[in-house]
């Protein structure tokens, strides 16, 4: 297979994700764009499994691991980890968004300021 195809797909998805983060006003839509970015990274990791041999140098394989195993497939493992992280992130992110919604009755990203003194003053 021509491995450049999934690579390019991943790159384009990443670009779309960045575009979405910077363009969307609604916080939930921003989270959706972030999911796109994470998926793009996952895709690239998995594709790398195919096209590159990942070598864990200096790591001692567990003694009970089967000797002479096939290709390690670290890319897939890392993709799994990323999926778990994404899930955790969405959970916490949505909790924040809902809390913000309680305070502001809207989840527009524009109004979030990085210095919080005026937040408190403005109420």
């Amino acid at each position: 297979m021509h491995v450049v195809i999934p690579y390019v797909v991943g790159a384009l998805l990443f670009g779309l994700g960045v575009y979405g983060v910077l363009r969307r006003r609604n916080a939930i839509l921003v989270l959706m764009a972030v999911e796109l970015m994470l998926n793009a990274v996952n895709l690239i990791l998995v594709t790398a499994d195919v096209s590159l041999r990942s070598a864990l140098t200096g790591v001692v394989v567990e003694s009970w691991a089967r000797p002479g195993a096939a290709t390690p497939g670290s890319g897939g493992v890392l993709a799994l980890f990323v999926i778990v992280l994404a899930a955790a992130e969405v959970g916490v992110g949505l909790a924040i968004i809902l809390q913000y919604y309680r305070m502001r009755k809207a989840v527009v990203v524009d109004e979030v300021r990085l210095d919080d003194d005026e937040e408190r003053v403005a109420g």
Binding site: Y7, G10, A11, L12, F14, G15, L16, V18, Y19
Partner: peptide, 16 residues
Amino acid sequence: AALIGGGAGLGLAALF
């Protein structure tokens, strides 16, 4: 957004 997103995406694609 278009500049940065397009730049990132197309740049990475070109890299790959």
